[in-house]
Simulated assay, not measured.
Amino acid sequence: MEHPPGFVDRDKTDHVCCLQKAAYGLKQAPRAWYTELKAYLLSLGFHNSLADTSLFTLCCGSDFVYLLIYVDDILIIGSNNGLITHILALLAERFSVKDAEALNYFLGIKAHRTSRGLHLSPKKYILDLLHSHNMLACKPVCSSMASSPKLTLHSGIPLSDPREFRKLVGSLQYLAFTRQDIVYAVNHLSQFIHRPTNDHLQAAKRVLHYLAGTTTHRIFFSASNCLSPSCILGCRLDWGHG
């Protein structure tokens, strides 16, 4: 690390700092933080998911805790409030953490809890996506993909700069987790990532037209579901306003 302004030794201007720990703001800081946190969680008995390295799970008899990490934000859920409180207390002993608060907004998804269950709304994420592509005022359509003509690898003219298409499809892939009505369209568009054409880009923007008219669609997890693995994955789309 180069000497910060004002701390340069005039007799040793070619010297650099040897860091004893990662400094916040440097490129390696998130990796160092994750490595430290991961080691501590594993020492508590958590297991790191093979499908998603950001996910850690802890099972204590019939109770469980899921802990999801995004840089320095942590989402923690579980089947036992006492166990969650205990885990939070252990984290506070080892790291400097803020007081836990009810989930409200996480990675572009707004969470709203009612007596009926949990509503997850990606409305703000959709509006930000439309804004980034200058399509806030676009005309809505009733479906995410046209039935004809069929898209193929050879449809249209290859794009001179495929980055816009790839960035858009990547954003839609994340959105599809909470908007299952666009899963088919997004998966189909993903087949053309390596060689996108103007037709593929037009089809991707059609998904944005569809989203512009369905920003209030959300996903709902019912409070009446049991906590067996088959029910944890069970969910339905809620077309109400929210």
Rank of each mutant, 00 (worst) to 15 (best):
G213K: 00
C17P: 06
F95H: 03
I219K: 04
T85A: 14
A39Q: 14
G170R: 07
Y24N: 04
P30W: 10
I77E: 12
D14E: 14
N80A: 02
L211H: 11
V169N: 00
R236L: 11
L189C: 13
F165Y: 15
Q202W: 03
G156Y: 00
L233M: 10
K38P: 01
L83V: 02
A100V: 06
K12W: 13
F7Y: 15
E2Q: 14
A89C: 10
H188F: 13
G45C: 04
V141F: 01
V186C: 13
D11K: 09
F7P: 05
V16Y: 02
L19E: 09
V8C: 01
S228P: 08
L68K: 11
N81T: 13
L50C: 11
A51N: 10
S222G: 06
H131W: 08
Y210F: 09
F221I: 10
G82N: 09
H119E: 00
R236S: 13
F165S: 05
T13E: 12
C226R: 15
P122G: 00
I77G: 12
R163A: 15
T53L: 07
H217N: 14
K110L: 01
Q191L: 14
I157G: 02
A100P: 14
A22R: 07
N134T: 12
H131D: 14
K124F: 03
P229W: 03
N225K: 11
L50T: 13
H209P: 07
H133Y: 15
T13P: 14
L37G: 01
L37F: 15
P149V: 02
R94P: 09
C18Q: 13
A111Y: 10
I74P: 02
D128E: 09
H131I: 05
H3T: 12
L168F: 07
E101H: 14
I109Q: 01
L26H: 09
L75M: 05
P158E: 06
P122Q: 14
A39V: 02
E101V: 12
I182V: 11
K27W: 13
Q202T: 15
N104T: 11
C235H: 14
E36G: 11
L120S: 00
G108T: 03
D9Q: 03
Q202I: 10
F46R: 10
I84C: 09
I84A: 05
H217A: 03
I87E: 01
P229I: 08
A100Q: 09
G117H: 01
V8S: 00
H3C: 11
K167I: 07
D14V: 07
L129T: 06
P158F: 00
L130V: 06
G78I: 05
Y34V: 07
H131Y: 07
H131L: 13
K38N: 12
G170I: 04
I219F: 03
F64A: 08
A176P: 10
V71L: 01
N134F: 14
H241S: 12
D63K: 13
H154L: 04
F95D: 10
E2T: 11
G6R: 01
Q20Y: 10
S171M: 11
H86C: 08
